Simulated scan of single mutants.
Amino acid sequence: MKDKPRVYYITQFITAIFWGSVIPVYVLYFRHFDLNLFQVAFMAAIFESSILIFELPTGLVADIYGRRISLLLSALVLFFGGLVFIKFPTFFGFIIAEITVGVGYTLKSGAFEAWIFDSLKHEGKEKDAKEVFSQGKRYQTAGELLGMILGGYIGFWSINFVWYPFAFGSLATFVFLFLAMREEYWEKAKEKIKVFKQIKDTIQKSLEVVRQKKLILALVVLGIFSSFSFETISQFWQVHFSENLSVATSYFGWIVAGSSLLVILLVNKVSKFSEFFKKETTLLLILKIGFFISFLIIAFTYNPILTIIFFILLHGFEGFSAPIFLDIFNRHIPSEQRATLLSFQSMTGSGGEVLAGLFMGFFALNFGLRPTFGLGSLVMIIGVLVFFALILQNKKL
């Protein structure tokens, strides 16, 4: 398939379906096999920790051996991770499965965005990257929505079959990428040098980019604060809506659907607004401030309808900012270390999520959800201020 963006869109859509199919029944699946709530939280921590550990090494795999190889490996590893969930439904089996799925996730994280950006750059279409990332976000969100609907029905029909779409969806992704994905620029650019020397050079050059470019450092820092803040609302919104606002759980699916539809319908239009600003980071800052305001209102309003509206807006701001963030980040990093640097950024974001899971869980237990959400919104605005301070040092902005 010669149309690289089409491969990107289809892959985003397929992978989002099988990832999304697990979301509605993730906790219920573990509870079905008699895991307590602490053990369920432990599983999530295992997954995020595996991302922290393997994100950078798998980014090196993509930069040294090629992004296509990394993505094919990702699909295979995710397939085997799904099989472990299916065949070994025990506490220790789940630990192995979570680690395996975490490794599979990291093999795709960074590598896929690096592949599409460098493919566009190779074809002289680098200016189309923002539009491609925005369109990819639309397909991803649509896939997640479809997957969540599918997962809900599968969970209702038989909880034992929850991981089948994940496993065989991963296998289907492998077949599709094997047949459709090409990496012409890599064939021309790769050099035959010693692997360990290349690993060392890639790490050194990647760290040098982060050290020298204030904008890249600012984006990495913003990613950490954003992940911490977003993980706070992601973990506890259902409990807050149910216990503090008395919103019936039957509405939860519609609330998530509303959030997804907002992103699907408007993400392209919002991304184009960045062209009206002199500085490329302005729209990103506006969206993060919108996230902060929405989160703050959710924390302290007692009106269920108002809370739902701003929850949907919060997810919209997060979804709108993703392609803009990717476009800016990719424009300021070298192709040779692109996957490694994208993996590094993803790794630091996962670190923020792990910290949020540990600290905010303790904070919520002792002080309640409203103060926890207030603190989560405060973390976001601190991240925005640090980001703003760092980019002021970058004279090119």
Rank of each mutant, 00 (worst) to 15 (best):
P165D: 05
T202V: 10
S206W: 05
N160S: 14
I199Y: 10
K200S: 12
V195L: 10
Y164G: 06
W163V: 02
G169E: 05
V210N: 02
F178I: 09
F178A: 14
M181G: 04
E187P: 12
K190F: 14
L150N: 06
L150R: 04
Q204V: 12
F176P: 06
Y164F: 11
K205W: 02
E208A: 10
G147A: 04
R211E: 04
R182K: 15
K205C: 00
Q204W: 11
F168P: 05
G169L: 05
K190N: 12
S206R: 06
V162H: 02
I203P: 01
T173F: 02
G155W: 00
K205Q: 07
M148D: 05
F196Q: 13
G152M: 02
L146W: 02
V162T: 09
K194R: 14
V209S: 05
K213W: 05
V210T: 07
G147V: 01
F196G: 13
G151I: 00
P165I: 01
L171F: 14
T202W: 11
W157I: 14
G151N: 02
Q198P: 02
V175F: 15
S158R: 11
W163K: 02
I193A: 08
I154N: 03
I199Q: 06
G147W: 00
V175D: 09
Q198S: 11
L207I: 12
S158G: 03
V210L: 08
W163H: 10
G155C: 02
K190R: 15
V209M: 09
P165R: 00
F176Y: 15
S206E: 03
A180Q: 13
K192Q: 11
W186Q: 09
F166D: 01
W186I: 11
M181F: 10
G155Y: 00
E187W: 14
K213D: 06
K192W: 08
M148H: 03
L177I: 13
G147H: 00
S158V: 03
K192E: 13
V195Y: 08
L179K: 15
T202Q: 13
V209K: 09
I203K: 03
I199D: 01
I203V: 14
G152S: 04
R182W: 12
E191M: 09
F196E: 14
Y153W: 13
T173C: 08
R182V: 08
F156A: 13
A167D: 10
K214R: 15
D201P: 01
K197G: 12
F174M: 12
L179F: 15
V195W: 05
R211C: 00
Y164V: 15
F168H: 07
M181H: 08
L177K: 10
F196K: 14
F166V: 05
I154R: 03
K200Q: 13
N160E: 14
I203Y: 09
K200T: 11
M148N: 05
T173N: 10
A180C: 13
I199G: 01
P165A: 03
R211M: 03
M181D: 06
W186T: 06
E183S: 04
V162M: 05
K205D: 04
T173D: 07
K190P: 07
Q204D: 10
K213P: 01
R211L: 04
M181I: 09
W157M: 12
G147M: 00
N160V: 12
N160W: 09
L171M: 13
Y164I: 15
P165H: 00
F161K: 04
V175R: 12
K200L: 12
N160A: 13
L150D: 07
G152R: 00
Y164T: 14
G147R: 00
I159R: 04
F166I: 04
I203C: 02
E184Y: 12
Q204M: 12
